[in-house]
Amino acid sequence: MAERPHPHQLQVHPHHQVHPPHRYDASDKTFFPRRGPSAGELLVVLALLPVGGSLLGLAGITLVGSLIGLAVVTPLFVIFSPVLVPAAIGVFLAVAGVLTSGALGVTGLSSLAWVANCLRQASASMPQQLDEAKRRMQDMAVHMGQKTKEAGQATQNKVQEAAK
């Protein structure tokens, strides 16, 4: 078999110019693009500025109200703590009891559903099992009748031989 001549491949590499190390110049790069914001971006900022400001103001008012309420209620908590601590424990135990009874109720219902499903499946296959049991009992009765007949004949034969 004759060898084919390999085609010549010509690879062209562009000449890269080697630049001297470039010093960082802060004016080359900026954090923001050099162009200004678009009209759509300005409209979004102008629309959301009042909303954000009002939400920030409401958060501040809520914080101040919470601090004032805590300052007013703290002495009451200290004064009534002998009553509040047992009441809190009682509420906790009541909630825990309700949740526990609910969990046990769900567990009981799921257990009853499982038992009902097992009974339903067993009752579906029950007629087949009863028919098979009847057939086995009939076979056993026939077999026992045959054995009884054979035993009776054997006994009769032995009695006849003994009488001779």
Rank of each mutant, 00 (worst) to 15 (best):
K158G: 06
S101W: 12
D28H: 14
G40K: 04
P7I: 06
F77E: 01
M137P: 05
L104W: 04
A154H: 09
G105K: 04
Y24A: 11
A39K: 06
M1I: 11
H22I: 08
G36S: 08
D131H: 15
G145L: 05
V115A: 13
L112E: 07
L58P: 00
M126I: 04
V64E: 00
V64Y: 00
A162P: 00
C118N: 15
V78G: 07
P50D: 00
S110I: 08
V64A: 02
V72R: 04
M140N: 14
A116S: 13
A122D: 06
K149E: 11
E132D: 12
W114A: 15
V78I: 07
V12A: 04
A113P: 04
L55M: 14
Q121M: 11
R35D: 05
K29G: 11
L56G: 14
A103Q: 14
R120M: 11
L48V: 04
T30N: 11
A2M: 09
G65Q: 08
H143D: 14
G65N: 13
L99M: 06
L99K: 03
A154D: 09
A133R: 10
L93R: 03
S125C: 05
V73H: 01
H16D: 12
V98R: 09
K164P: 03
F77A: 01
E41Y: 13
A26C: 05
A71K: 03
E132T: 11
P75V: 00
A141D: 12
A47R: 12
T30I: 01
Q138H: 10
A154L: 14
R34S: 12
V106C: 11
L46Q: 15
I89W: 13
Q128Y: 15
V95Q: 01
V45I: 07
P127M: 00
K158I: 08
Q11V: 10
T155Q: 05
M1C: 13
P50R: 00
F80A: 11
P75D: 00
T107W: 09
T62S: 06
V159S: 01
K147N: 07
V51T: 02
L130T: 04
D25E: 07
L93H: 03
M140P: 06
S38T: 01
V18E: 06
G97Q: 00
